[in-house]
């Protein structure tokens, strides 16, 4: 894991979760800001994943490979899932879905860092 990227994902995820949570409380459906935010998070996640996979192929493998790959794959799939369901649900619950996903992403990144150790 690259610490700079990891911190960026965690901060971006928490900011987006806070914003989406606020939108849900204000009874607002997901807007462009949240979709752009999810895209940014996804791009950083993909770069992070590419770097991690590259390092695994050069022999620098984490202790718990299964856990690491599982978390990585899940983390990368989360923003698209949240965006699809968020777009489908044009109510406050769409914002709530994005908020929930954006709370889970930092947790997954922290777990990734722990597993890579």
């Amino acid at each position: 894991m690259v610490d700079g990227f990891a911190t960026t994902i965690i901060v971006a995820g928490l900011v987006l979760a806070g914003f989406s949570g606020l939108m849900a409380l204000l009874d607002r459906p997901p807007g462009l800001v949240q979709l752009v935010g999810l895209t940014v998070v996804e791009v950083i996640l993909l770069v992070q994943a590419a770097i991690a996979i590259g390092r695994m192929f050069t022999g620098d493998r984490p202790e718990g490979m299964a856990t690491f790959v599982g978390y990585l794959l899940t983390a990368v799939l989360l923003p698209p899932l949240a965006a699809l369901l968020g777009i489908a649900e044009r109510t406050r619950w769409g914002s709530a879905i994005i908020a929930a996903a954006c709370l889970v992403i930092p947790v997954m990144v922290v777990r990734l860092q722990q597993v890579w150790g």
Partner: peptide
């Protein structure tokens, strides 16, 4: 729909997380 879609999202997430891990 509505709150139900949030439930669907969380269920889908758990299916994904547990499925990927168990599969591996």
């Amino acid at each position: 729909a509505g709150f139900g879609r949030l439930l669907v999202a969380v269920y889908a997430f758990f299916a994904l997380a547990a499925g990927v891990r168990a599969g591996w």
